[in-house]
Design a protein around this nucleic acid. Structure first.
Lengths: 140, 140
DNA sequence: ATCCCTGCAAACGATTTGCAGAACA
DNA sequence: TGTTCTGCAAATCGTTTGCAGGGAT
């Protein structure tokens, strides 16, 4: 769109604040229904539609980004403007929880491929410390 | 599963063969409906349900794996047994086509994280050669 | 008063499943 | 013949949208 972005005031709202907080407090990206489950405690009656709506809004603002994992689409906060992943994720194949990893583990060396590379997404798979220490725990 | 795998005969079938061929001939992972579109030429009347069914079956056999990209779930053949990605992908942000990249571009150095790492998934983003050379081409 | 934000329910797109018939062993 | 495979349509799941009410400015 070429017209100046809509200048409508972005109102403060309970759902919005709660959802941001929930994302900030998570150890990694969350699925939409997880966001809902965590937010509804402090905001009874919150609807899942609102969660999706707010997430989409926050993505448009560049405050949240969607990560595609084998477990489905998950959402995480991101430094405003960084649409693309700036740190890798770790997905535990037992408990299926996704964690953030420190950035800097991977730098795409000047690759010898005919593509122009702008960004990357890296997900590591394995077992998290909890699942390593309780190997008997079964998984869904 | 500890019991010997079901010994039911895996029958030969047109859809199955076509789908495998389609995946083998693609330059990268395909979405389910792309598989269908490419397969239905040689097998008129093929239903999308069959495509999903065969893909799921092939995944269970370890012949096919699902890749989660921002464009949705896409499927690719894989060396039997390698459930997890063994080569990175490249996703063109303009034409949204996914390509395979040679493996070996990334080896998870012994990382200093409390996780046990078994495998990785790496997707690079940017522009493909075609889109680089035709920068005026707009995107859906 | 106006416009945004919310919840509910209906709509949607992707994927799965039930079922009866066709194909194969 | 018995079992697997297939297409169709219905069901399901995650996500989006229409709508009317309640709040914020």
């Amino acid at each position: 769109m070429l017209t100046p972005l809509k200048t409508t005031t972005q109102r403060r709202s309970l759902p919005r604040d709660r959802i941001i907080t929930v994302l900030d407090e998570a150890p990694g990206p969350l699925k939409a229904d997880e966001v809902w489950a965590l937010a509804v405690f402090k905001h009874p009656g919150l609807g899942i539609a609102t969660v999706y709506r707010v997430l989409k809004q926050l993505m448009a603002e560049g405050q949240v980004r969607a990560v595609m994992l084998p477990t489905g689409t998950q959402y995480e906060r991101c430094p405003a403007g960084a649409h693309l992943q700036d740190h890798p994720h770790f997905l535990c194949r037992q408990c299926l929880v996704a964690y953030d990893l420190p950035s800097g583990l991977f730098q795409p060396h000047s690759l010898v491929v005919p593509f122009q590379i702008d960004a990357y997404e890296l997900t590591l798979h394995g077992l998290c410390p909890q699942c390593l220490s309780t190997p008997t725990r079964t998984y869904p």
